[in-house]
Protein backbone atom coordinates (compact mmCIF):
# COMPACT_ATOMS: atom_id res chain seq x y z
CA UNK A 1 0.00 0.00 0.00
CA UNK A 2 1.17 3.52 -0.78
CA UNK A 3 0.69 7.02 0.59
CA UNK A 4 1.33 10.45 -0.92
CA UNK A 5 3.63 12.13 1.58
CA UNK A 6 4.05 15.91 1.77
CA UNK A 7 6.60 17.34 4.17
CA UNK A 8 9.65 19.53 4.34
CA UNK A 9 13.14 18.17 4.85
CA UNK A 10 15.72 20.77 5.86
CA UNK A 11 13.43 23.50 4.54
CA UNK A 12 12.83 21.88 1.14
CA UNK A 13 9.28 20.79 0.34
CA UNK A 14 8.87 17.21 -0.85
CA UNK A 15 5.89 15.36 -2.30
CA UNK A 16 6.56 11.67 -2.74
CA UNK A 17 4.57 8.51 -3.23
CA UNK A 18 5.96 6.10 -0.66
CA UNK A 19 5.07 2.62 0.58
CA UNK A 20 3.18 2.61 3.91
CA UNK A 21 5.84 0.40 5.46
CA UNK A 22 8.71 2.78 4.67
CA UNK A 23 10.61 3.98 7.74
CA UNK A 24 11.52 7.65 7.96
CA UNK A 25 15.24 6.83 8.03
CA UNK A 26 14.94 4.88 4.77
CA UNK A 27 12.88 7.70 3.24
CA UNK A 28 15.57 10.23 4.16
CA UNK A 29 18.47 8.12 2.96
CA UNK A 30 16.95 6.48 -0.12
CA UNK A 31 14.32 8.93 -1.41
CA UNK A 32 15.87 12.29 -0.56
CA UNK A 33 19.48 11.09 -0.74
CA UNK A 34 20.36 12.64 2.61
CA UNK A 35 22.65 9.99 4.04
CA UNK A 36 23.83 11.99 7.06
CA UNK A 37 21.26 10.19 9.25
CA UNK A 38 22.72 6.82 10.21
CA UNK A 39 21.18 3.42 10.90
CA UNK A 40 22.98 2.04 13.94
CA UNK A 41 20.96 -0.54 15.85
CA UNK A 42 17.77 -0.49 13.78
CA UNK A 43 15.59 -0.69 16.87
CA UNK A 44 15.56 2.54 18.87
CA UNK A 45 18.42 1.60 21.15
CA UNK A 46 21.38 3.64 19.89
CA UNK A 47 20.02 7.03 18.76
CA UNK A 48 22.25 7.32 15.66
CA UNK A 49 19.12 7.94 13.55
CA UNK A 50 17.90 10.89 15.68
CA UNK A 51 16.34 13.65 13.58
CA UNK A 52 14.16 16.61 14.52
CA UNK A 53 10.47 16.32 13.71
CA UNK A 54 8.82 19.69 14.36
CA UNK A 55 11.80 20.65 16.58
CA UNK A 56 11.61 17.49 18.70
CA UNK A 57 14.27 14.74 18.64
CA UNK A 58 12.90 11.38 17.51
CA UNK A 59 14.20 8.10 16.12
CA UNK A 60 13.85 7.96 12.35
CA UNK A 61 14.28 4.15 12.50
CA UNK A 62 11.08 3.71 14.56
CA UNK A 63 8.96 6.27 12.74
CA UNK A 64 6.93 5.33 9.70
CA UNK A 65 7.49 8.02 7.08
CA UNK A 66 3.77 8.08 6.28
CA UNK A 67 3.03 9.30 9.82
CA UNK A 68 5.07 12.46 9.16
CA UNK A 69 2.47 14.10 6.90
CA UNK A 70 2.94 17.91 6.86
CA UNK A 71 5.85 17.66 9.31
CA UNK A 72 9.04 19.67 9.34
CA UNK A 73 12.00 17.29 9.35
CA UNK A 74 15.55 18.42 10.06
CA UNK A 75 18.63 16.24 9.67
CA UNK A 76 22.32 16.81 10.23
CA UNK A 77 22.71 17.39 6.47
CA UNK A 78 20.78 20.66 6.71
CA UNK A 79 22.60 22.38 9.54
CA UNK A 80 25.51 24.12 7.85
CA UNK A 81 24.88 27.14 5.63
CA UNK A 82 27.16 28.26 2.82
CA UNK A 83 29.83 25.77 3.89
CA UNK A 84 29.94 27.30 7.39
CA UNK A 85 29.54 24.83 10.23
CA UNK A 86 27.15 25.60 13.08
CA UNK A 87 28.41 26.17 16.61
CA UNK A 88 27.53 22.58 17.51
CA UNK A 89 29.36 21.16 14.54
CA UNK A 90 32.38 23.30 15.35
CA UNK A 91 32.15 22.11 18.96
CA UNK A 92 32.28 18.44 17.92
CA UNK A 93 35.23 19.30 15.71
CA UNK A 94 37.17 21.49 18.16
CA UNK A 95 36.60 19.31 21.22
CA UNK A 96 37.08 15.98 19.43
CA UNK A 97 33.48 14.99 20.17
CA UNK A 98 33.55 12.62 17.19
CA UNK A 99 35.92 9.67 16.89
CA UNK A 100 34.56 7.04 14.52
CA UNK A 101 31.74 9.51 13.87
CA UNK A 102 28.87 7.07 13.41
CA UNK A 103 26.86 8.32 16.40
CA UNK A 104 27.68 11.95 15.69
CA UNK A 105 24.69 12.86 13.46
CA UNK A 106 22.33 11.65 16.20
CA UNK A 107 24.36 13.31 18.94
CA UNK A 108 24.33 16.62 17.08
CA UNK A 109 20.58 16.53 16.39
CA UNK A 110 19.73 15.61 20.01
CA UNK A 111 22.05 18.41 21.17
CA UNK A 112 20.49 20.83 18.66
CA UNK A 113 17.06 20.08 20.15
CA UNK A 114 18.44 20.69 23.64
CA UNK A 115 20.05 24.05 22.79
CA UNK A 116 16.86 25.30 21.14
CA UNK A 117 14.90 24.55 24.32
CA UNK A 118 17.63 25.42 26.77
CA UNK A 119 20.47 27.64 25.47
CA UNK A 120 22.37 27.45 28.77
CA UNK A 121 22.31 23.78 29.81
CA UNK A 122 24.12 22.37 32.83
CA UNK A 123 26.23 19.24 32.45
CA UNK A 124 23.32 17.26 33.95
CA UNK A 125 20.93 18.77 31.38
CA UNK A 126 23.29 17.70 28.57
CA UNK A 127 23.63 14.18 29.96
CA UNK A 128 19.83 13.90 30.28
CA UNK A 129 19.24 15.18 26.74
CA UNK A 130 21.77 12.73 25.27
CA UNK A 131 20.65 9.75 27.38
CA UNK A 132 19.11 8.01 24.36
CA UNK A 133 22.29 8.38 22.25
CA UNK A 134 25.01 5.78 22.60
CA UNK A 135 28.67 6.35 21.70
CA UNK A 136 31.14 3.46 21.87
CA UNK A 137 34.28 5.55 21.31
CA UNK A 138 34.49 8.75 23.27
CA UNK A 139 33.28 7.94 26.77
CA UNK A 140 30.96 10.97 26.39
CA UNK A 141 33.23 13.48 28.14
CA UNK A 142 34.34 15.05 24.86
CA UNK A 143 30.79 15.10 23.57
CA UNK A 144 29.62 17.02 26.62
CA UNK A 145 32.50 19.47 26.16
CA UNK A 146 31.45 19.89 22.53
CA UNK A 147 27.90 20.87 23.54
CA UNK A 148 29.22 23.22 26.22
CA UNK A 149 31.52 24.80 23.61
CA UNK A 150 28.53 25.36 21.34
CA UNK A 151 26.42 26.85 24.15
CA UNK A 152 29.23 29.28 24.98
CA UNK A 153 29.69 30.27 21.34
CA UNK A 154 25.97 30.88 20.96
CA UNK A 155 25.88 32.93 24.18
CA UNK A 156 28.74 35.07 22.92
CA UNK A 157 26.73 36.01 19.86
CA UNK A 158 27.71 33.43 17.25
CA UNK A 159 24.79 32.41 15.10
CA UNK A 160 23.56 28.81 15.27
CA UNK A 161 23.19 28.58 11.54
Amino acid sequence: MKTVLSLTVNGVAHDDVIPDNMLLVDYLREKTGLTGTKIGCDGGECGACTVLIDDRPRHACLTLAATCQDSRIETVDGLSRDSRLTALQRGFNEKLGAQCGFCTPGMIMASEALLRRNPDPSEADIRDALAANICRCTGYVKIIEAVQFAAQELASGELAS
Binding site: H59, A110, A129, A131, A132, N133
Partner: peptide
Protein backbone atom coordinates in the same frame (compact mmCIF):
# COMPACT_ATOMS: atom_id res chain seq x y z
CA UNK B 1 10.72 5.48 30.52
CA UNK B 2 13.57 4.79 28.08
CA UNK B 3 15.41 7.94 26.90
CA UNK B 4 14.26 11.47 26.03
CA UNK B 5 13.89 10.76 22.30
CA UNK B 6 11.64 7.74 23.02
CA UNK B 7 9.46 9.82 25.32
CA UNK B 8 8.80 12.28 22.48
CA UNK B 9 6.70 9.67 20.67
Amino acid sequence: VAGPSHREY
